[in-house]
Structures are given as structure tokens and as C-alpha cells.
């Protein structure tokens, strides 16, 4: 099965490990991700102002690209892109007046009415591939690996974009268990990492990261798995400072869900680009004999 795919900016630079491992894993599961042509930045955040339509243009143009290519579904990986595209799409689908204005403004484009379905690849894994089929293809069960599933914000909130239950979601838990790992449920799984506040207020992110990481550690996690490149950055890049601040904090490896998926499917670990991230997830995986 082919699936149109929108990568977004960060996946091409800072989060190659997320993209490459996901593309390779989906391929192994029989889903070919077809990157859409001429895509542009999604705008990263969905405009929350009633009177600001200009910022919806960027995500809608990407959806028009999908439609032009004859596809009615687009998969995303980055939580920010998912959120922005999903909400812009709902706006085009449900608000006739704003849709008209936006379509009128983009004279050069075909009219768009929200025909495309925006999905996150986790949903594709759950709903299209199915946990059982994934389980059947696991070649390196992640046995003995205790992983805290961390969802962050933009895949779950608000309700209209939620890929799972808003509170106490389970989709990452289910993926981890499918891969043979132990999902370590922890209370901060949906707490915000501080997001873009990293730009102006990095100290606050240190505080947010500490709450999340220490909570996962208290429940016995050996690693934390997530979907969002910004969460990944905030939760891993602050760790060196946290180690200085808290002498008994030894660090907590942060992994993308797709990296664990690729490892479990027996795909060569180079698609995970472990070398380019922060922290050292590789030695944990090696200590569990999951990668050589």
C-alpha cells in the first residue's frame, strides 16, 4: 500500500532518525511512504485567532498538494505538523465562510474543501497495519526493555485532533507491548515539555523536563519514547544541565517510537541515526542485546 507522506522541515535536518526509521519500518510492514512533491513548511503552529486566516495558507497549500497528487490521505510523523495540518484541514472542512475566503485568496490553486484525511503514522500502525500484524513481523522482541510512553500535547489536544483518548491514551503503550517492551505507565505522559518556550525561556524547559523525566524514572523507566522532535529536543538536550543540578540523575535515553519499531523489526540500526541525537540510547539497547 502506498501512503502520501508529509515530512516537514525538522525531519529533514534535526530529526532524521525519526524519519528514516519510520520510512524503513513502514516499508517493512508493507506501507510505502510517498513523499508529496513541492511541500512547504506547515507553519508549525495552528493559528488560534478567529481573524487570522493568513497563517492557515501554509498548511492548506500542503493539503492541496496531496489532493493534486490524487491522494485522499496524508500521513505525518512530526507532532507539530500533524496538529497544524489536521486542524487546518478541519477548518477547511467545517467552516464554509473561512474556506471560501482562503480558496479565493489562493486563486492559483484548485479549490480545497477538506477532502484529504490527515493521519499520524501511529494511527496507521494501529488502524491499517494492526498490532497483530506488527507483532507477527517482530524479529527482535524488545524483551526486558522498560519504556515510558510520552505523548506530549499536539497529538491529543484539543479533542478534535486526538489520535487516542485525550486523557490516559494507550496507543504508544500498545505499540511498545506489541514490540515486546514493557510500557511503563507514568503520570506525566501527557504533560507539556514546555514546547517553543525553549526559544526565549530555556530555564523553564529545564524545569518541565525534570518533572517529566523524574516521574518516568520513579516508575522504573529505562527509556522514554515519543513522537515529537521538539519534545525530543527539550527532554534530551536539557539533560546535561539536569545531571549537574541533580547528582543522582544519570540521564534517561529518549527515543522516537519509530526507532524502537525499526529495531524490533530487525532493521539495521543506522536508519535510527542514534549518533545525531543527545544522550546515549544506543548503549541501553546494546546492554539489552537489542542491537549489536
Amino acid at each position: 500500500m502506498d501512503l502520501s507522506y508529509y515530512p516537514g522541515c525538522t525531519l529533514k535536518t534535526k530529526a532524521k532518525g525519526l524519519e528514516d526509521s519510520a520510512v524503513a519500518s513502514m516499508d517493512a510492514l508493507g506501507i510505502r511512504l510517498v513523499e508529496i512533491e513541492r511541500w512547504n513548511c506547515c507553519g508549525t503552529v495552528y493559528s488560534l485567532a478567529e481573524d487570522d486566516l493568513a497563517h492557515h495558507l501554509a498548511p492548506v497549500r500542503n493539503l492541496i498538494r496531496v489532493k493534486e497528487q490524487g491522494s485522499d490521505r496524508v500521513g505525518t510523523l512530526c507532532s507539530f505538523c500533524y496538529h497544524t495540518l489536521k486542524r487546518a484541514n478541519l477548518l477547511m472542512r467545517n467552516d464554509g465562510e473561512k474556506r471560501q475566503t482562503l480558496n479565493d485568496f489562493m486563486e492559483e490553486e484548485v479549490d480545497y474543501n477538506g477532502e484529504v484525511e490527515v493521519v499520524h503514522l501511529l494511527e496507521v500502525l494501529r488502524d491499517d497495519v494492526g498490532w497483530e500484524n506488527i507483532a507477527a513481523k517482530v524479529r527482535v522482541p524488545l524483551q526486558g526493555l522498560k519504556v515510558a510512553p510520552y505523548y506530549g500535547c499536539t497529538l491529543l489536544r484539543p479533542q478534535e485532533v486526538a489520535i487516542d483518548q485525550v486523557e490516559r491514551p494507550t496507543i504508544l503503550h500498545q505499540l511498545l507491548e506489541t514490540l515486546g517492551a514493557e510500557a511503563v505507565d507514568f503520570p506525566h505522559a501527557t504533560e507539556c515539555c514546555g514546547s517553543f518556550q525553549i526559544v526565549g525561556n530555556p530555564d523553564f524547559i529545564t524545569q518541565c523536563a525534570w518533572e517529566i523525566l523524574s516521574s518516568a524514572l520513579r516508575r522504573g523507566a529505562e527509556a522514554l519514547v515519543l513522537t515529537c522532535p521538539l519534545c525530543h529536543f527539550n527532554l534530551s538536550q536539557r539533560q546535561s544541565e539536569l545531571m549537574q543540578r541533580y547528582s543522582d540523575f544519570q540521564g534517561l535515553p529518549i527515543l522516537y517510537f519509530s526507532q524502537l519499531l525499526a529495531i524490533a523489526l530487525g532493521i539495521e540500526s543506522k536508519v535510527c541515526h542514534f549518533e545525531s541525537g543527545y544522550g546515549d540510547p544506543l548503549s541501553l539497547l546494546k546492554s539489552k542485546n537489542l542491537v549489536s
Binding site: G8, C9, T10, T13, K14, A15, C41, G43, T44, V45, H55, C78, F80, C81, S195, F196, Q197, I198, V199, G200, P202, P229, L230, H232, F233, Q237
Partner: peptide
């Protein structure tokens, strides 16, 4: 250095909001 280090989504969203 910070600009070079930050993921694009952080910078773009930070500037969008602030």
C-alpha cells in the same frame, strides 16, 4: 549557537507566538 541547535519547529513556533 542556540539558533543552530534548535529544531526548526521550535524557532518557527517561538517566533510565531512571540
Amino acid at each position: 549557537d542556540t539558533i543552530g541547535e534548535l529544531p526548526q519547529i521550535a524557532l518557527v513556533s517561538g517566533f510565531r507566538k512571540h
